[in-house]
Computed example of a mutant assay.
Amino acid sequence: MTSVFPAFPRFVFTVLEPISLIAGAVAPFVSPEWFIAEQTPKASLQLASANARVVAYQLGNIYLLLAMVGIAVLYSTTEPKVVRNYVVALWIADIGSHVAITCYNIEYAELVNFAEWNPMTWGNIGATVALFLTRTAYLLGIFGPNRQAALISKKLQ
């Protein structure tokens, strides 16, 4: 593995996150109605419109694309600047898309009632906030410095 991350963020960003993205990619293809219904804590499985199913499939496709891009970037570069820029882009998207959009579209009473959140809401808000905090800690250098590119290159030879 060529990742320049220190140990903990390397595990989170190169193993856990790709697995969660692949799971997010598979879910709408298995059951688009379920995937659509689970986007808010009060899930009600209804027949989804063709438009809603297309959006669910497209979102699944984007999750798969994100997993592939992450794997391609993080497993192929030894350049810390590339990795940092990738993490910054994800850091911005974490709060902007997943958390803010999800929170905006859930009624306040449901939003603050954590006990009633479904797994999708925990993923969209809880897991994303955890990733955001891990990215923040990495960007602030809390996990220590990046691994040196020369050390990584020697390991590959």
Rank of each mutant, 00 (worst) to 15 (best):
L66W: 15
R53S: 06
I95A: 08
N113V: 01
G126M: 07
E38W: 03
N61R: 13
A93Q: 06
I92H: 04
S76W: 02
T102R: 12
S44L: 07
E107C: 03
W122A: 02
W117G: 10
N51P: 01
A56I: 12
M68P: 01
Y75Q: 14
A56Q: 04
L66Q: 10
S49I: 10
V88W: 14
S49E: 11
E116C: 01
G60A: 07
S97D: 04
G126W: 02
T40H: 08
S44N: 12
A37K: 01
L90N: 12
S76Y: 05
V87F: 11
I95Y: 12
V88R: 12
N105V: 00
R53K: 15
A89N: 02
G126L: 11
A52C: 00
Q58H: 11
A115I: 08
A115V: 11
A50L: 11
Q39R: 14
A43P: 01
L111E: 08
V54D: 09
I36D: 01
L64V: 09
P80K: 12
A72Q: 08
I36W: 06
W122Q: 03
R84E: 15
A127C: 08
L111F: 13
Y104N: 13
L74E: 09
N85E: 11
E107A: 12
S49M: 03
A67Q: 09
I101D: 02
G123P: 00
